[in-house]
């Protein structure tokens, strides 16, 4: 039986619109795929699909320097992949950036076996990057908090989209079951 999604595209999109987001620089992932159609349908939002996540930090930097307000939307595994761009461009050039990260393997119910989940928060802490957990619509206002912090400090701030596959099965725009561990 399908349970209702705890975090809906509407709640996330409202936050992106409220914060004046112009571009979503993204490589689709299983944790945030349910947002794709809503983003495509939003007239004021320009999607920038990338081939690899490392590009996303650099493209966002160019957009920011050009006066736009991008977010990066990638999976935690993509954040690991993008590490040197995050360090060498976003952090070194002191640019604000909100990164919306699909928290692969996240669970409130016991120890995760997915190393992508076990490493995510320690890695963010090692880089000194603040982050906010968003599990349900009521948490979505934390996205605004992330924007306030990123632009006040000129640093990247992460929003971790934590959708527990055991709590919500409304995770697919195709109706296909989630493939655990899939990117």
């Amino acid at each position: 039986m399908t349970q209702p999604a705890l975090l809906t595209p509407t709640a996330v999109m409202e936050e992106l619109k409220k914060n004046g987001v112009t571009h979503v620089v993204t490589l689709p992932d299983s944790e945030t795929r349910w947002m794709w159609r809503a983003m495509e349908a939003e007239a004021g939002l320009d999607l920038v699909p990338v081939s690899q996540e490392g590009e996303s930090m650099a493209i966002a930097a160019g957009l920011t320097m050009g006066g736009k307000r991008p977010v990066v939307l990638i999976q935690s595994t993509g954040l690991f992949e993008a590490g040197d761009s995050l360090r060498g461009i976003t952090l070194e050039l002191k640019l604000p950036l909100v990164m919306v990260i699909g928290y692969r393997g996240w669970s409130r119910h016991g120890v995760t076996t997915d190393s992508a989940a076990r490493f995510l928060e320690p890695v963010l802490n090692a880089w000194g990057i603040r982050y906010h957990l968003v599990e349900r619509d009521a948490d979505a206002k934390r996205i605004s908090l992330a924007f306030e912090e990123a632009y006040r400090t000129s640093r990247p701030v992460a929003v971790l989209i934590a959708v527990d596959p055991t709590a919500s099965t409304e995770d697919s725009d195709t109706g296909l079951p989630r493939r655990k561990g899939a990117r």
């Binding site: 490392g54 590009e55 650099a58 493209i59 930097a61 957009l63 050009g66 461009i89 070194e92």
Partner: peptide, 16 residues
């Protein structure tokens, strides 16, 4: 820094 990403920064600027 961030080897190879100059063209990606350029893309962002070109779009902006």
């Amino acid at each position: 820094d961030a080897m190879g990403k100059a063209s990606s920064v350029a893309l962002g600027l070109a779009l902006a």
